[in-house]
């Protein structure tokens, strides 16, 4: 059984102007010890999906439908009280630690001990601090630094603190929401390596959210590509990199610099994502798609299986699939 199974998750935000359809019909699953990457441009709904999973949406956000199964229990309808019991203990999240993700006027240790205390109330203060020290060593920080304040850490170190916090109550599933954005390349690689090691070592299910296909490709087993609130392609990493099917995935691929290529030369995808209050009737990528045909503007593509574990939502691919099968 998968430790996390998301089934047609749909999340909207209420605004005065109307509903923002930020996330529609999202389905994927995550096994023990597996890494799943969720990729897309900013505003494509990946953070909404993550916040829906741990039920920390802003006040105007609401899960409209679908199920979220953690170890076989659907938490989509859990009350706030029930959610509190499983946050950190079963599912935890690593936010981008750069800015204000940690309370600036409390030591990092206090903030981690606070989390441990909620879920392991039989532990004494001393044991909690002991455990925090151990966690620091696990993420390769000197254990003495638990008494330091957030501003006394560098960006990469702060990210490690966030990871230590996310692991503090032995969760099954860890969500990393852009955990390396804003760090320089060397530090980024170190943090990603650390996450991968911890995942394999502890058998965590890691959901890594990023706008950077390359960094997800290096660490994850499976990849979900999202565009404008929809999943457009879902496949194991090696297959996706070998044979990307969706035109959007292909454009993302082109944006990855190969070795020796100058970063400035990467062609950005022209145009911007559509308005999600009144999304287009047909394919949401239509306006920016280099391969679009007239039919794409009217007909909504659905996610179909191309092979057993390669899924894609594109009319062109769909017709090819029906051609070869029919």
């Amino acid at each position: 059984m998968s430790i996390l199974e998301v089934e047609s998750l749909t999340t909207y935000y209420k605004l005065r102007k109307g509903m923002v359809k930020a996330c529609e019909n999202i389905s994927f699953s995550l096994e023990k010890g597996e890494g799943l990457g969720l990729v897309g441009e900013s505003g494509c709904g990946k953070t909404t999906a993550a916040l829906s999973l741990i039920r920390l949406l802003p006040e105007n956000g609401e899960i409209m439908g679908g199920s979220i199964n953690i170890n076989g229990r659907d938490i989509a309808g859990y009350t706030e009280e029930e959610m509190r019991q499983i946050r950190m203990k079963e599912i935890s999240i690593i936010f981008q630690g750069a800015m204000n993700a940690l309370n600036p006027v409390r030591t990092v240790g206090t903030q981690i001990v606070e989390a441990i205390k909620v879920h392991y109330n039989h532990l004494s203060d001393k044991e909690c601090w002991e455990r925090t020290g151990d966690l620091f060593e696990k993420v390769e920080i000197d254990r003495e630094r638990v008494r330091d304040y957030p501003h006394e850490f560098s960006g990469g170190m702060r990210q490690r603190v966030m990871i230590a916090m996310a692991l503090s109550c032995d969760p099954f599933v860890v969500i990393g929401d852009e955990p390396t954005t804003g760090l320089d390349v060397m530090v980024q690689a170190q943090v990603l390596q650390l996450l991968e090691d911890l995942r394999k070592e502890q058998g965590l299910g890691l959901l890594l959210i990023s706008h950077d296909l390359a960094c997800v490709g290096e660490t994850c087993d499976k990849i979900v590509v999202m565009y404008a609130g929809h999943i457009v392609e879902y496949a194991p990493t090696d297959i996706l990199f070998k044979q990307p099917l969706h035109p959007y995935t292909k454009s993302l691929m082109k944006a990855i610099p190969s070795i020796g290529q100058k970063r400035e030369l990467i062609p950005p995808i022209p145009g911007s994502p559509p308005d999600l209050i009144n999304p287009p009737a047909g394919c949401r990528f239509f306006a920016r798609c280099p391969e679009a045909v007239a039919e794409c503007e009217r007909k909504k593509p659905v996610l179909v299986s191309v092979t057993e574990d390669h899924h894609c939502a594109c009319l062109l691919v769909d017709s090819k699939v029906s051609d070869t099968s029919g």
Binding site: F95, P104, E114
Partner: peptide, 22 residues
């Protein structure tokens, strides 16, 4: 509206604790 409030909520602490401690 600060980010560390969401971090605190992600720990599973109660709303009263959130107000009291952060």
């Amino acid at each position: 509206n600060e980010d560390y409030i969401i971090t605190a909520r992600a720990k599973g602490i109660s709303y009263i604790q959130l107000l009291k401690r952060h």
